[in-house]
Design a binder for these strands. Structure first.
Lengths: 330, 330
DNA sequence: AGCTAGAGATAAACCGGTTTAGCTACGTTC
DNA sequence: GAACGTAGCTAAACCGGTTTATCTCTAGCT
């Protein structure tokens, strides 16, 4: 099995390699007659350019990259990334180079390598941290990049995000309107930028509200809930940073005999079939992660085609009230 | 920003490009003294070989490929693939080239291209179909491949799978032992090989059992359940091909006033937090998809290093009885 | 001493493209 | 009719590696 190369076309069409390259890429320098002939030979041979060779001579690599720096084991629980990837793929005809690493240093190193080796044309930056070192890195490398989900502005990079602060405010004011006074929050990884933003918005909207830190897993969500419900000032409402922790929390409440929503209201910051299908169904902030991924992909395509960096705000997650929240009874 | 190349090392160390290549790859042809010198220069320069250039001269591409031929929109619901990918990544230090396509033809074409362009060293084949054309394709291309989850033997390819038939048999005999006579099955996509195998095993173990076809989504799972529960011969137990459909089915049962497990037993063929966290928790076949992915990765590494093809059977999914199944009451 | 082996290194070809410099033939222009 | 411009093409360099053919030198053997 050997695929035809540009050289085969050249000999078949009776022209030089260079002429074939010009003809195939629609660039001036060859006559229409020659171009015609080259194209017909190419298609008759079923020619496909090798993106490997092309990448080597400083053109496009025909791939974009995404590095995930999280423990691989915990990734399965987060459906967010997979939906994001699915959305990206729906919009992008290129392949996605994906690698999971276990440290931020390894992540940095990988961006360096991919760039040096022309393996990708651009990258997505996810899980943005406070003062994230990746931002200056890709900027200094000149590696096209889109910041995904890191609210706000990052250097000169294009950024696509949803307004976590506004979303958090809408949740808290909804709970306040139901009469809740003691509202708690079970937060995600503290190092992440959006966690910090949600924390701040939560504190501003619910002064004195307790924040417990967790890591998106059901174990930690359950533990945090237990801590909150058995503590001194038991909250009447808890906002969880994702769906898995919220559902786990609901389980702990049931186990402790705390009625939902009569004694405890629960809100999840991510929606999923999980929230809809359990009993009682959970009030949740819903957003279309798939569409979000598609938007991020479009943004990266724009950057690749040389567009000036932009900040795109995705639609703010919408609160969908379900049976897990209610007017405070006491 | 320019990374050091092999040429830089050569001039710095005062040797030729070829000698540097030999030294770096630990091959004979250079003296220990020279090798030593080259290595120290390389590390002092922070040298990283370009896998793009390396791939061009018919060596390793330093990446493996995975193509998913499913509607991108439905992918988010299936946590299976993401856990699989996470497991693969845990074992593999290479990048994974991932692409989602919308037709089987496009998938075939992509494998062709990746191979022709040396973009990958090997591939995973998932979602195996009956008489899958990909098997003869990769065999004739000589593209190293591992068949993931396609029970049994496929040409001369290495294969990693779990015994779906045995698992299905264990589920049915468990239900039979509880006294169930009318058992139904809500199946996944009919074109997939493992669906066929589960169908066969189900038919053999529960002669006359009804099989309704669905597509793993909660909508279709709910619809199938509705059909079964409102039909003439209402089943006393339903086995669902995945967790999402099972949970959706439980919801429909509740809605129709069919008590679980008193009037209807439910078993899910995939376990997840979803099954554990709802009420009642669902009896499910549990398996470690992450570990399965890791095993598949090891299998591919073995193939890449020239090992003869093997068939590896993963541990059979284990039935975990929970509150959704019970002795038949009537 | 003469011949052979083999170690150690180099130069050059090669992978499959892109890009640049240069060449040829033809048509304008003054 | 000499100078110039330009369209159309070719040859060759280049990207960063690997691999092969070749060359030199030293050691070992008869």
């Amino acid at each position: 099995m050997k695929r035809p190369t540009i050289k085969d076309i050249a000999t078949r069409a009776g022209v030089s390699k260079g002429a074939v390259s010009l003809a195939l890429n629609g660039r001036p320098g060859v006559s229409d007659a020659t171009r015609e002939r080259v194209l017909s030979v190419a298609s008759s041979l079923g020619y496909r350019p090798s993106s490997t060779a092309r990448a080597l001579s400083s053109a496009s690599a025909d791939a974009v990259g995404l590095v995930l720096a999280r423990p691989a084991r915990t990734l399965g629980a987060e459906s967010f990334f997979f939906q994001l990837i699915a959305g990206i793929q729906a919009e992008l005809s290129m392949a996605l180079l994906l690698q999971v690493v276990d440290s931020h240093e390894a992540e940095i190193e990988l961006y360096r390598r991919w760039w040096a080796e022309h393996r990708v044309d651009g990258v997505f930056l996810v899980d943005l941290r406070v003062d994230d070192p990746r931002v200056p890195l890709v900027e200094s490398l000149g590696l096209p990049a889109v910041v995904v989900g890191g609210a706000g502005h990052h250097g000169n990079l294009t950024s696509v995000w949803a307004d976590d602060a506004k979303a958090m405010t809408s949740v808290v004011s909804y709970l306040l309107s139901l009469g809740h006074k003691r509202i708690a929050r079970v937060a995600g990884l503290p190092s992440l930028l959006h966690t910090a933003r949600r924390d701040a918005a939560f504190q501003a909207a619910a002064p004195g509200g307790v924040i417990v830190s967790a890591d998106y897993t059901d174990e930690r969500g359950a533990a945090a809930t237990r801590e909150l419900l058995t503590g001194a000032q038991r909250p009447t409402a808890i906002v969880y940073d994702n769906d898995v922790m919220a559902v786990a929390g609901a389980g702990v409440a049931a186990e402790l005999g705390v009625a939902v929503p009569a004694e405890l209201s629960i809100v999840a910051f991510d929606d999923s079939p999980l929230c809809r299908l359990i009993h009682p169904p959970l009030t949740a902030l819903t957003r279309d992660t798939f569409a979000f991924g598609a938007r991020a992909a479009r943004a990266l395509l724009a950057v690749l085609s040389g567009a000036r960096p932009t900040d795109t705000e995705d639609t703010t997650p919408v609160l969908v009230p379900r049976a897990s929240t209610a007017q405070i009874s006491s």
